[in-house]
Amino acid sequence: MIPLSWYLVLGAALFCVGVYGVLARRNAVAILMSVELMLNAVNINLVAFWHYLTPSAVSGMTFALIVFAVAAAEAAVGLALIISIYRRRQTVVAEDVSMMKF
């Protein structure tokens, strides 16, 4: 029987790896990949809580499905934005797209 805390610690560790990736990477596509890591960590948490606390209610699985759909929509729109920026500025480095900085 795997303790619940193991799953939660794994989710926390994955989330933190994702946070490091978002803050430290230069390439915009790499930042998006780190965001996907964070969303996956959230999913582990949701499904682990569903399995250990309320296995008869399906709200945990529903929430996880919604997170899947939101991640897919966000990845699609984010990558469309990145491709559009690349066409205009010929760069995908996040630091170079800084025209709105004051």
């Binding site: 926390a12 560790a13 989330f15 933190c16 790896v17 946070v19 490091y20 803050l23 430290a24 990477r25 230069r26 390439n27 790499a30 996040a94 630091e95």
Partner: peptide, 20 residues
């Protein structure tokens, strides 16, 4: 492939992980 914030990012990630 990493910007100047990497050490700060490492500290933030570790602190967040510890807090969680």
């Amino acid at each position: 492939q990493t910007n100047d914030l990497r050490w700060l990012a490492l500290v933030i990630a570790a602190a967040l992980g510890g807090a969680i």
